[in-house]
Design a protein around this nucleic acid. Sequence first.
DNA 1: CGTAACTTTGATTAGTATCAAAAATGGTGG
DNA 2: CCACCATTTTTGATACTAATCAAAGTTACG
Lengths: 210, 210
Amino acid sequence: MRRVAAGAHLVREGERPDESRLVVAGLAYRHKLTRQGARQIVSIHIPGEVIDLHNSFLDVADHNVQALTDVEVALIPRAALRELNASHPEIARAFLTEALIDASIVMEWLLNVARRDSLTRLGHFICELALRLQAAGQCDAASYSVPFTQDQMADALGMTQVHLNRMLMSLGRRGFIERDRRSVRILDWDALAAFSDFDPRYLHLRDAER
Amino acid sequence: MRRVAAGAHLVREGERPDESRLVVAGLAYRHKLTRQGARQIVSIHIPGEVIDLHNSFLDVADHNVQALTDVEVALIPRAALRELNASHPEIARAFLTEALIDASIVMEWLLNVARRDSLTRLGHFICELALRLQAAGQCDAASYSVPFTQDQMADALGMTQVHLNRMLMSLGRRGFIERDRRSVRILDWDALAAFSDFDPRYLHLRDAER
DNA sequence: CGTAACTTTGATTAGTATCAAAAATGGTGG
DNA sequence: CCACCATTTTTGATACTAATCAAAGTTACG
């Protein structure tokens, strides 16, 4: 087990780490950079997820992982993880399921960034975060504390921080959400979900429970 | 084994198919739609890949898969695939590796769409396609026949067909590529890769070979 | 209390979408 | 084998979303 402070790197692109990490508490995010330094957050990891199966089953890391909040992780050596995968069919099944769900979410993000305008895109993101945090027991209702700065949120949504701020305001003015500092309250879930073209199917929450 | 004509659907969103498909010959693509009907192609499948592990290990399909060219697929029943995964550790490992590489590629696409301008984005895509088609033995050099219409390519790159066309022309005018009908020849690989911020690490070609 | 990090607002510009239509291509039936 | 039609590609003109640049407020923290 290891505690890691918010902001610290868990994985760096180009490394060949010999262990993977299971998030026990806190949140982490995975991101990639272009040569020019533009950053794109490609996924968020909640407690219960193995952040980096990639590290144990592929050769070299092609992305970075950082702690979003203070995080508690369990380190699992590469050899142990491979052994588990080989000798315990139920675990192998769980790893595969987790990898497939992870990919599904990234695909939805790709659709989101590529084909939805910034306002619906943000709404969609807020809905997803609400459901996933709930599923992880991090919040109870449609009211939660967003663990991101606006800068980070913009990096997850493929837009600039300035524009993100305007879109947040706009969702507020339109009556979908209420904000107070970092906390967000969804005033009318159905309305926001409809407006944001949000359908939770891609989260596979049922599949993940098993 | 089954032959499928170009354009035919292999998987539809919302279905619960009881089998997965291995691409034996030809190409397939996976896409998602927004409510308004905007389409985003989220991945391309080359011979040797199982298109839909998702179908056998998750509950309901959250995306569509269509044949890009005429395709030959092997159908593998859900139960057989699960049995294989449970009883053959090397196969379980291969499935997991394939799922992780698949996810890596989608992450790079997300970065590509979110953070690279349309010209570098297209260059990046052309480089990727060249390497993957080569790896699958579909073409031998940096010259290949693009299996997409410009409309489909635009749907993969998150832009409009009109704009894609202009960017193709621009790559030609700048001397990176030569086109003749559907065929593309990369005139200077290093120059195009550098211009397009293309680093093949994310394809994990080595890992896939094993 | 002071400073750094974060959020909000404003003005301007760049990149890409949209709308429209012409030109080229490929496949098909006569 | 040719004429025709549907599909695909190319070009042009205009509109609009989001980026960029700049700076003022605000909050959190040591």
